[in-house]
């Protein structure tokens, strides 16, 4: 049994980077008991999981914990996130998950707080397992696409049977019996579903937080149904329902980070902004990789060639793929650097920029949808800022200057979304300034030349 890692000097970590890793995603199990039809990991182009052990060995986990502690010491981290992931991490059992969290906490220097979560499909959650996780200070994030069987029709097991009954049971168990361990819900946007109905069904599961993830896709393998502004409209409809609720019913990461970025505050999401990315993955065989979402681009996109037995995480910081995600605007396409939404959009999710033969130096395949969404949120913020304070007075310093052509009523992009009959856009803040036909409206698209030579791996 070794003690906390000694503090030794490391490479520079100033504002110019490299920025140390602070989020460590540990693949506890490389397989999944579900076979979701849209899974980018098992249905995507990268099949590297087939050649790896199903579960991480004790040796891999011990070495990983040691490397995390070494990195925390070298960079004097005060906080780090330990994400126990998969596949389905609970296939490894709750005990091993708790043990890894405990071991990392043992090894990091005093004063470094370890925030541990497990991301699960919830089908294997039981009262006993949740008690083990909660006692170990491991919070539980759940992946679900809505709060009904219909919303989760694509989340099936290997025999094609719906996962919803078991997942719903697990999710309700967390909400009712272990609310302090409930981290939140991750939902992949399905634009064929009613946005407001989907959101409200998720509220029924009483999550403390929620995030809405655009399905992984890129210019060479576009996401499903990427026509018009379906994804942007879908997000706008949910935003209006959330914004006008009269109280904050749930934290919605994408929405709140967009507000933060619009107001010039620091933000925390891969989906938006220019913050340097600081997450790293350890696979079940000990390989150090970039995050799984890159595997949706092409086989080997996440590979670094490093492993925890022979390499430190500092060596991974020097990998060109990692460096590109910490380079801010330098790794963006020219179109993005010239875009007025740059500091908010940040080029969108890195994986969504890929184009075969041209790497990642492209705008997001969701460019138009992101523009639609960001301008919509800006218009709602602008309207709110022009309103009165809670004591009835107008708010000095709350006037907004500059163009407000937020596109919030662009033809062909109704806020309610194609399938919605829900109560969208009914609150006082939803009567935003009438936009011009937004820049992303039909008929105003232009074709940009493709920037070549942007590959990073």
């Amino acid at each position: 049994m070794t003690g906390p890692a000694p503090v030794v000097p490391g490479p520079r970590t100033g504002p110019e980077g490299p920025f140390p890793f602070r989020q460590f995603i540990v693949k506890m199990h490389g397989r999944c008991n579900l076979a979701c039809t849209y899974c980018y990991l098992y249905e995507g182009p990268d099949n590297s999981w087939r050649d790896r052990p199903a579960a991480a060995s004790a040796a891999v986990l011990e070495r990983t914990a040691t490397r995390i502690a070494e990195h925390a010491a070298r960079h004097a981290l005060r906080d780090l996130a330990l994400v126990l992931h998969g596949g389905e991490p609970l296939l490894a059992g709750a005990g091993p998950l708790a043990a890894v969290a405990g071991r990392v906490r043992e090894l990091v220097p005093p004063g470094c707080q370890v925030h541990a979560t497990v991301q699960t499909n919830a089908t294997l959650l039981t009262e006993e397992r949740l008690a083990v996780l909660a006692d170990a200070g491991v919070r539980v994030g759940i992946s679900l696409d809505g709060g009904t069987a219909a919303h989760n029709r694509r989340r099936v097991d290997h025999a094609g049977r719906p996962s919803w009954p078991a997942a719903a049971r697990g999710a309700r168990l967390v909400a009712e019996r272990f609310p302090e361990a409930y981290a939140g819900l991750l939902t992949v946007v399905d634009p064929t579903l009613d946005p407001v109905e989907t959101y409200e069904s998720l509220l029924d599961l009483r999550p403390p937080a929620l995030d809405l993830l655009l399905p992984h896709g890129n210019w060479s393998s576009p996401p499903p149904g990427l026509t018009g502004l379906r994804y942007g409209d879908w997000l706008c409809a949910v935003f209006d329902r959330w914004w006008a609720a009269g109280r904050r019913e749930v934290r919605v990461r994408l929405f709140e980070e967009c507000v933060a970025l619009l107001l010039g505050l620091p933000a925390a999401t891969e989906a938006l902004g220019l913050a340097p990315f600081d997450a790293v993955v350890v696979e079940t065989d000990g390989s150090i990789e970039q995050v799984d979402s890159l595997k949706s681009a092409y086989p080997g996109a996440a590979r670094t060639g490093l492993d925890v037995f022979r390499h430190s995480f500092d060596e991974a910081l020097r990998h060109p793929g990692v460096a590109a995600r910490q380079a801010g605007t330098a790794s963006l396409a020219g179109q993005c650097r010239a875009c007025p939404l740059l500091r908010v959009c940040g080029g969108g999710h890195y994986a969504h920029r890929y184009r075969a033969g041209h790497g990642f130096r492209n705008p997001s395949v969701y460019c138009a949808d992101l523009q639609r969404f960001i301008r919509h949120v800006a218009s709602r913020l602008t309207a709110a800022a022009s309103a009165r304070t809670s004591d009835g007075s107008s708010a000095p310093g709350s006037s907004v200057t500059g163009p407000v052509s937020a596109g919030s009523s662009a033809p062909g992009s109704s806020v309610a979304g194609p399938a919605s009959a829900g109560p969208t856009a009914t609150g006082p803040a939803s009567a935003g300034p009438a936009g011009s036909a937004g820049p992303a409206s039909a008929g105003s698209a232009s074709t940009w030349p493709v920037a070549a030579g942007g590959g990073v791996s």
Binding site: R22, Q23, I25, A81, V83, H85, H115, T117, Q119, G141, A183, L186, D211, L213, R253, E256, V259, A260, L263, L265, P266, A267, A268, T269, E270, A271, A275, F277, D278, A279, V291, S293, H349, A384, A385, T389, A395, P396, G397, S398, V400
Partner: peptide
């Protein structure tokens, strides 16, 4: 905008 008058880091999108 005056934020007081007008409302705010893990980035891995767990």
């Amino acid at each position: 905008l005056d934020l007081a008058r007008l409302l705010l880091l893990w980035g891995f999108d767990s």
